Deep mutational scan, measured.
Amino acid sequence: HYVEVNGKKIQATSAEEAEKIAKKFAKIYNATVLDLGNYYKVT
């Protein structure tokens, strides 16, 4: 599981952790979290 933010991949140990990381970055960048199955993308 990982999160992609601005083209950078951030490794996460679980889907739950990946979701938390994605939501945190989405809040910082006022962005949207896309759940793409095996990873989250912040756009």
Rank of each mutant, 00 (worst) to 15 (best):
V42A: 03
L36W: 03
I28P: 02
N38A: 11
T43S: 11
K20H: 09
G37S: 05
E4R: 04
K9M: 12
G7R: 04
T13Q: 13
V5C: 10
K41H: 06
V33D: 01
K27V: 11
A12C: 15
Q11H: 14
N30R: 10
T32L: 11
N6K: 08
V33P: 03
A31K: 03
Y39L: 06
A18D: 00
A12P: 01
G7F: 05
V3S: 00
N38Q: 10
T43F: 13
T13A: 14
T43M: 13
H1F: 15
Y40L: 10
V3D: 00
V33N: 01
Y29I: 05
Q11Y: 15
I28M: 14
Y29Q: 04
E19W: 15
A12S: 05
Y39N: 06
Q11P: 13
S14F: 03
I21A: 02
L34E: 12
H1M: 11
V42R: 03
G37R: 01
Y29K: 05
F25T: 00
G7T: 03
Y40C: 09
A22D: 00
K8I: 13
Y40T: 04
Y2I: 07
S14V: 02
I21W: 09
V33K: 02
E17F: 07
G7D: 04
A26L: 05
K23G: 06
E19D: 05
Y2N: 01
A31S: 08
K23L: 13
A15E: 05
A15S: 10
K24P: 00
K8N: 08
A12K: 02
G37M: 05
I28Y: 14
A18Q: 01
T43R: 07
E19H: 14
I28K: 12
K23F: 12
E17W: 07
L36N: 06
K23H: 12
S14K: 02
L36Q: 06
V33A: 05
E19N: 08
N30M: 08
I28V: 09
K24M: 15
K20C: 15
V3Q: 00
E19G: 08
K41N: 04
S14R: 03
V5A: 03
K41P: 02
K8P: 00
D35K: 15
Y39D: 04
A26R: 05
Y2K: 04
E4F: 10
N30W: 08
A22I: 03
A15W: 12
I21M: 11
A15Y: 08
K20S: 11
L34W: 07
S14Q: 02
V5T: 02
K20E: 11
A12G: 03
A12N: 01
K23T: 09
A15K: 15
S14G: 05
V42F: 03
A15N: 09
V33S: 01
V33Q: 01
L36M: 15
A31H: 07
A26N: 02
Y40D: 02
V42S: 02
K41L: 14
K24D: 08
A26M: 07
V42C: 09
Y40E: 01
I21Q: 02
E19R: 14
N30Q: 09
L34Y: 08
V5H: 04
Y29E: 03
K24A: 14
G7A: 04
Q11D: 08
A18G: 01
E17V: 08
K41E: 06
K9W: 13
G7Q: 03
A22H: 01
E17I: 08
I10C: 13
T13L: 11
D35S: 09
E16R: 12
E16Y: 11
G7N: 05
L34F: 07
G7E: 03
A26G: 06
K41I: 15
A31V: 09
N6M: 14
H1I: 12
K23N: 11
V3H: 01
L34V: 13
L36P: 00
L34K: 07
L34R: 07
Q11M: 15
V42D: 03
K24Q: 12
T13R: 15
N30G: 14
E17D: 10
N6S: 06
Q11I: 13
E16W: 11
I28Q: 10
K8W: 14
A22P: 00
K9D: 01
V33Y: 10
T32G: 06
A18S: 03
Q11V: 13
T13Y: 11
Y39W: 12
N30P: 00
V42N: 03
E19Y: 15
D35L: 14
A15G: 07
N38G: 15
A31M: 14
I21L: 12
I21C: 11
A18T: 00
K23P: 00
E19A: 12
K24T: 11
I10E: 01
L36V: 06
N30L: 07
N6Q: 08
L36S: 04
F25H: 01
D35E: 09
K9R: 14
I10F: 11
Y2V: 06
N6C: 15
V33E: 01
T32A: 09
V33I: 12
A26V: 06
A26C: 06
Y39P: 00
H1E: 02
E19I: 12
I28T: 07
E17P: 00
D35T: 09
K24W: 15
S14P: 00
N38W: 12
N30Y: 06
V33C: 11
V33G: 01
A15P: 09
T32E: 11
K20V: 09
V5S: 00
L34A: 06
G7P: 00
A31N: 02
K24S: 11
K9L: 12
A22N: 00
V5Q: 01
K41R: 10
E4S: 06
Y2G: 03
L36Y: 13
K27E: 10
T43C: 14
Y39V: 07
T13F: 12
I10S: 01
I10G: 01
I28W: 14
K20L: 11
A31E: 02
A22T: 02
Q11W: 15
F25P: 00
K27W: 13
S14C: 07
A12F: 10
N6T: 04
K23E: 08
Y2C: 09
G37Y: 07
Q11A: 12
G7V: 01
K27G: 07
L36G: 05
K23I: 12
A22F: 05
K8M: 13
